[in-house]
Write a protein that binds this DNA or RNA. Structure first.
Lengths: 346, 346
DNA sequence: CTGAAAGCGCTAACAA
DNA sequence: TTGTTAGCGCTTTCAG
């Protein structure tokens, strides 16, 4: 098969019997360029005949925009690859991008990768902006630096940063989950975190838990708090610890479904029943939580909306300049299933 | 903040006191260009001082390569977003790409999107090649067409296509799972498919199931086969049907873990125990299968390797021309947990 | 060993 | 209303 050169604007111009300029004007639909209807028609036809598409590289060079944005994943594989959260975010995001005719460059940047790899993307002008998912504290400096030249939106929270960001209202969500347990009459409620408290999301959920207890006039008891770290295994260990307590909690709020899976396993091994002996509430509403035994009561995260909002914010920055909105906090909702003992249906 | 122009090769040349050519030669490490060590040194220093990076668009234009490849997801959201399979594939893939200094453009192309959207990527020369994940039968034509001009690798199987592809050996895997059940003494073994048989993967698994039965001298009984379709809900319905049978199967091979989740739920509702009353084997080994009750015996899919191999194949095509390898079939392995009754450890 | 010059395909200011 | 022209930043013959 001959590797025939793809058609250029020149070819279209020749076929239509006009100049390259005219082709450009017509094809880009430049508003104030008044082109005679028939010329426009001829150009359009020629372009269609040749199946012409402008060369992305050439366009990039001359317009200064690549029409690509980067989605940088800062999480460890443990965090990213364990549930379906990420794909849903990407779905929301790519819907928004598709409408705007932008493309999505996926760039994994594990914590052990140097941030410079990302800055290269920007220096090479390969992308018009980026969304950083799971920003880390160490990232603040280079982020702020780059944000002066390139639009950057955060997915998640970065303490002390003024960059636009989209996140879930973790504190409210955790408080809501805890209040639910309180409402069911529990007084001795444990907490298993989703991650070490150095992670903002984890910290905020911890705060929410405390706040709910406080509202109910229950003193915070640190022995009831165990620390998970993204994985079921960590949840198992944490629950194991709680079950060593002389006086067991009657309910536990596990700030991550995935972590809760491990916790649940340990509870079973100890011969305890959920929710009768121990009520459980999770967080994230990963797609499979509904299929545990018992189905897990949990906090639903609007993953797709997070992606969509992050996309919108970035688009706005690219098109109209840096948005004034500092942070968008998306609300969550409690999905009541059976693990908390307030169970809906069969 | 001043939007200062990023440095160009021209700037580097000026600072180093050489010509643009020299800069290019040095920075690209052109082998046969003999540059005096000190000149080279000066150029390198100047580039470092200015923090110079070549403009991706310019490079793309002149070299004819964008250094980006597309990962096109052809699956429905139902298929893609339900477990952690995709992220793992992407991880393997991006490892390979990173080494080769290529970037990854993620392009969701749901079945209801027109394939033309993808061909635009190629016509605009936005990508140097693509990986199509979950090819559909209707895609054959445009795929073959484009593969004449652009490297394309399939992730999954496309009947009748000669494009290089990477897939799991579904038939062997399904046979292995079924044989395991046979070995445990089951004779009346049901099958719940992962999808309609029009999907190659589904069809192959069905074949594997049949083959294993045949080897054991057990006649194929069509009433024991029910059809799932990606989701837990579909698995529930399928299992419901099997449980209506006058004579129940003693074991069921469910060709998808996610579908198995729904099936398991129904089994429980019917008051049956797994594995005592009904043994279960899944397929995919999604990360959460180990945390079901009972933990699911299943077939492990080397997702990361699939991504890696697909990347390698594509790279090879881009760099050295179309590979002769038609299809790479990756082996799977059986993960024996408790749902089959042959249970390992606690 | 290094520099001058051409041109990749496109857009946009300026003329006509 | 349309065409001429000058680059965008880079690579790459081809001379020097």
């Amino acid at each position: 098969m001959m590797k025939r050169r793809s058609p250029t604007a020149e070819d279209v111009a020749r076929l239509a019997g006009v100049s390259r300029t005219t082709v450009s004007l017509v094809l880009n639909g430049v508003p104030d360029a008044r082109i005679s209807p028939e010329t426009r028609q001829r150009v359009l036809e020629a372009a269609a005949r040749l199946n012409y598409r402008p060369h992305a590289g050439a366009r990039h060079l001359v317009r200064g925009r690549s029409e690509v944005i980067a989605f940088v994943m800062r999480q460890t594989p443990d965090q990213v690859f364990v549930d379906a959260f990420l794909p849903e975010v990407l779905r929301g995001l790519s819907d928004v991008l598709r409408e705007a005719n932008l493309h999505l460059l996926l760039f994994p940047l594990a914590p052990d990768h140097a941030p410079e790899e990302t800055t290269r993307l920007l220096q090479e002008r390969r992308v018009d902006g980026m969304i950083l998912s799971g920003p880390r504290f160490e990232d603040r400096e280079w982020l702020e630096h780059w944000a002066q030249e390139t639009p950057v939106v955060l997915l998640g929270h970065l303490a002390g940063s003024s960059l636009p960001s989209v996140d879930v209202d973790n504190l409210q969500a955790a408080a809501m989950a805890t209040r639910h347990l309180l409402r069911l009459g529990h007084r001795r409620i444990g907490l298993i975190t989703n991650a070490p408290l150095s992670y903002t999301a984890s910290y905020e959920r911890w705060l929410g838990y405390r706040q709910a207890l406080e509202e109910a006039g229950i003193p915070y008891d640190e022995t009831l708090v165990a620390f998970g770290a993204f994985t079921p295994v960590s949840g198992a260990a944490a629950m194991e610890r709680l079950l060593q307590l002389p006086e067991l909690p009657t309910a536990v709020f596990v700030a991550s479904d995935v972590v809760a899976f491990g916790a649940l396993q340990v509870i079973r091994r100890h011969g305890l029943r959920v929710p009768q002996d121990l009520a459980l509430v999770g967080f994230d509403d990963v797609p499979l939580s509904a299929y545990l035994d018992p189905p897990l009561t949990t906090v639903h995260l609007p993953a797709e909306d997070l992606g969509r909002e992050a996309g919108r914010l970035l688009l706005q920055w690219i098109q109209e300049g840096r948005p004034s909105t500092a942070t968008i906090r998306l609300a969550t909702r409690l999905i009541i299933r059976q693990s908390c003992g307030a169970g809906g249906g069969t």
